[in-house]
Design a protein around this nucleic acid. Structure first.
Lengths: 218, 218
DNA sequence: GTCTATACCGCGATAGAC
DNA sequence: GTCTATCGCGGTATAGAC
């Protein structure tokens, strides 16, 4: 688990965000920004952002501290990039539900929001994990929290509409439903790891089914 | 929100753990260990453990850094005490369910475990919040993680028994049920604050009902 | 019980050689 | 693109006066 240097050719990125020249290059690769970001996010999640030093990141990449600054302006920039990735993805997930055809019921939209959110949490697990742990200790973190609250409000609206529609039980305050429902979804980041036995789509359906139908045997 | 010094007479403790002489004392009170611990936990949760310095804690209490060390041996001791509080309480909660009368069904035991856990999360919210954020960065944290995993396993057993009994749906792996169920429960620490509109017992019943019955209108 | 002063260390970040 | 060396700061913790 401790700091064996990484192969520079292995970007470690789940998705290619386009900043990597990619295979077939010649000469010494060094590390591109995307690789550094991927490893930084992983370390931030393992140890916590504040407990992770630039020196830790350097060791992990097999470089010295100062070499990091050739690729990145500051430690906080790495955090900022990660939080943007998470927030943009989550926003997109909710947008899919909001953009459903007009005749779609509020309950169906909510279910879509849940399933799309699960997919995002799985696909961008490291970045979203980081987002969910942000406390607001700096302007970067505060603005991320603000964007996150905006997303929470969009979700709460979906829940309210579904309750008003009569599809969801009305013996629980809608705000509470919303918090518990997405508390369940968000808890995925605590244990889900890519390459497990359960694929993302199945997981999305299971989470939605458990939330809507409960865990009692039918 | 920023650092107005605390009244030493106000212990800030949710429960009196017995180390405070209490009201009616004469002379300069200073700060007892319990008060320092309560404020430390609050700050650790607001900013994160690593981002909180002894200086921050001193400012919050209206003291200097070095005065803290009259009450506490080290920053890590404060963390250790908080994690013990959380782990002992959670263990007790599960024990209540395990100690149910012999004729109690596994499903009933599980429901009790959920409700008792909610009560503990509410009553010891600050300490439990801290526990749920521990990453294992030091021996203290690692041993807390170990104890936490042991609790998770006891819970997973309860779920397995309930599935084996036929009371819970069997189309979802028991481990997954366990993780999602207590992911929901644990997510409470993210938003529950004492003195809100909803009392702990109602919340416990709501969480259990939502988990077992789902959020669909009946 | 709290203070001032300080030891000692590791942090983020920069300068400049290669 | 990476290195060595270093700056300045703030961290935990301690010593000793009051």
């Amino acid at each position: 688990m401790t700091g064996s240097p990484r192969d520079p050719w292995d970007s470690g990125a789940v998705t290619d965000l386009g900043s990597t020249p990619g295979a077939g290059r010649r000469g010494r690769p060094g590390f591109d920004q995307e690789t550094v970001l991927r490893r930084a996010i992983a370390l931030f999640n393992q140890q916590g952002y504040d407990a992770t030093s630039i020196g830790d990141l350097a060791k992990d990449l097999g470089l010295t501290k100062s070499a990091i600054y050739h690729h990145v302006d500051s430690k906080e920039d790495l955090l900022s990039a990660a939080l943007d990735e998470a927030l943009n993805s989550l926003n997109d997930a909710i947008q899919v539900a909001v953009d459903a055809p007009p005749q779609t019921s509020a309950a169906e939209r909510l279910r879509t929001a849940v399933e799309e959110s699960v997919r995002v949490l799985v696909q961008h697990q490291p970045a979203v994990t980081l987002l969910l742990r942000v406390r607001g200790n700096s302007p970067v973190e505060q603005s991320a929290l603000k964007r996150r609250r905006a997303i929470d409000e969009r979700v709460a609206s979906l829940v309210q509409e579904a309750v008003a529609e009569g599809a969801l039980r009305d013996d629980i305050p809608p705000d509470l439903i919303s918090r518990l429902l997405f508390g369940t979804v968000n808890s995925l980041v605590e244990w889900y790891r890519p390459g497990g036995t359960i694929d993302p789509d199945s997981l999305a359906r299971i989470v939605a089914s458990l939330a809507f139908d409960g865990l009692r045997a039918e």
